[in-house]
Design a protein around this nucleic acid. Sequence first.
RNA 1: GGGGCUGUAGCUCAGCCGGAUAGAGCGACGGUUUCCUAAACCGUAGGUCGUGGGUUCGAGUCCCGCCAGCCCCGCCA
Length: 614
Amino acid sequence: MLRIAHALEAQLRAALERAFPAEAAAASGDGTPLDPQLAPASQPEFGDFQANGALALARRLKQPPRVIASAIVDQLAADSSFAELCEPAQIAGPGFINLTLRPRTLAAELSTRLGDPRLGVPSAAEDPVQASSAEVLAPVIVDFSSPNIAKEMHVGHLRSTIIGDALARVLEFRGHAVLRLNHVGDWGTQFGMLITHLKQVAPEALTTADAVDLGDLVAFYRQAKARFDADEAFQATSREEVVKLQSGDPVSRRAWQLLCEQSRREFQQIYDRLDIRLSERGESFYNPYLEPVVVDLAASGLLVTDAGAQCVFLEGVTGKDGRPLPLIVRKSDGGFNYATTDLAALRYRFAVPPEGDGARRLIYVTDAGQASHFAAVFQVARRAGWVPEGGRLEHVPFGLVQGEDGKKLKTRSGDTVRLKDLLDEAVERSEADLRRRLAEEEREEDEAFIQLVATTVGIAAVKYADLSTNRITNYQFSFDRMLALAGNTAPYLLYALVRVAGIARRGGLGAGEGESAAGFPDHLVFSEPQEWALARQLLALDTVIAEVEEELLPNRLCSYLFELSQVFNRFYDQVPVLKAEEPARGSRLALCRLTADTLRLGLGLLGIPTLERM
RNA sequence: GGGGCUGUAGCUCAGCCGGAUAGAGCGACGGUUUCCUAAACCGUAGGUCGUGGGUUCGAGUCCCGCCAGCCCCGCCA
């Protein structure tokens, strides 16, 4: 419907200009062109779109809104291209203009989507509202997941990983060159203390691959942290170790590589289960770029030395004493910190190749607690002139994962929940539920089927539950809710798809994945309100995807898919498909085909695989 | 003390650039199955949108104050 919305928008604008030529000219002259305020209809009975502009213009034009609306409607009536798309426009309420698309417009739109792998969603390069193609080709960087080396992935990485992946998928689908970067914590003080500790308690871990397993490494890490906090001598040695590592000492370097390699394999197991692709580019990558960051800041006059630390004082951010807060980029001991690394990364990502990535949009998917940190880093980068014209910098924050008690999610013993355990439990519960239902229904399925369904549903449930809530608020984790077969859950959506697939198998016109779209009627005909409701919902896909691309809110896509499933289930319940006579049968099968394709595509963009049977 | 986020039905949450009568799911209650997978569908009940002001044709949405919860605030990330 994006294409139609653009056409209507242009027609409305033209109508507005013809109706009020003097005011329109004056308005565009002073840079505030008259806006028809085209929006989707707020209620189905108002049609497909509504234009709210007449109300807003009442004061400016010194005329009652309904008079303005009437003048616009008269001009629309004189526009044959408008009459082609729409039924005559209606004025309603205080001055809304309601627009209803002609049935044949809707049917024709649907027809063009049959067999179209993109289902009518334009790629950004061909979208008229997008910027030039050169800009579309410049990469978008999505920075997400970012676990720490020598630690296990835990529930804290869940949201970043799932949300970041979904956003990357949407951007890729829209035709952007996406760089998915895993900014792993593989550098800095923590490493110094871990290596120092291991040298003393488990030196073999530093010279032999997999001498200790990752669980032990995590324990060593905790011990190292405790010693670091308590023991000054240990602190000093750790700091020396960091310096050695960062200056390329072969022994430290070798130890570091072993630790990274081991962690990397563990992370990959999780990413494989979640079907997530990431390019690892850890903090260490930016080591050579740290010094230039400070030099550059000094050159631009932003750098101030305060209490031995080199920092940039922030504008508009004050501390307890009312004085500006600093962003420290070089500690008093000469070392760099995470702010330096983040600045170096940002600078590198915007810099033109081969000195950098040449990106035009940077998206950071991290928890909301880092909002002020990123605000500070972004501000300094802008003031330093590292953000190119038109370059976008976006922190995509998300809330905490909470347990059902509303507190931060922990295990019974109070530890952080390992991501592996969390996924295992989702799949186990899903499997138990499936087996129970198979027994109840006296269905026989082989073991491979049970494993496939249990795994798919379990992982899908975890992902969908996270994605379907607005990411900014804290998120209450509940296996029972996410695995529920009814409601806004992955199992409900997956089942809706299975029902469409059921029709496909019997209908013979192909609603299976990747099947030919041949055999559908040239002209789709609909008579039932449930058919029209489904048709309209199907046509809204492109608008929703464009919105997610812009707002970076995957829950919008989730809501859309849930509503689609509901509309489909209603249609399926109330309108016969296979038993219908032609030409209704073919048209209804076309709706089924498009529903199946839309659910597969939409769930795919969320990183959720689908099933044909369950 | 400063800053950020949040506050909408019993519970979990939507609510798009300020638009028409504030929505959904779960739970509760009632109904629907000779018919394509009932993991579904239909209906009923349930609201002072934290609170007090302001802006305007119109505010859950924007601005200011207050209350509550969570998070961040100089050399950890």
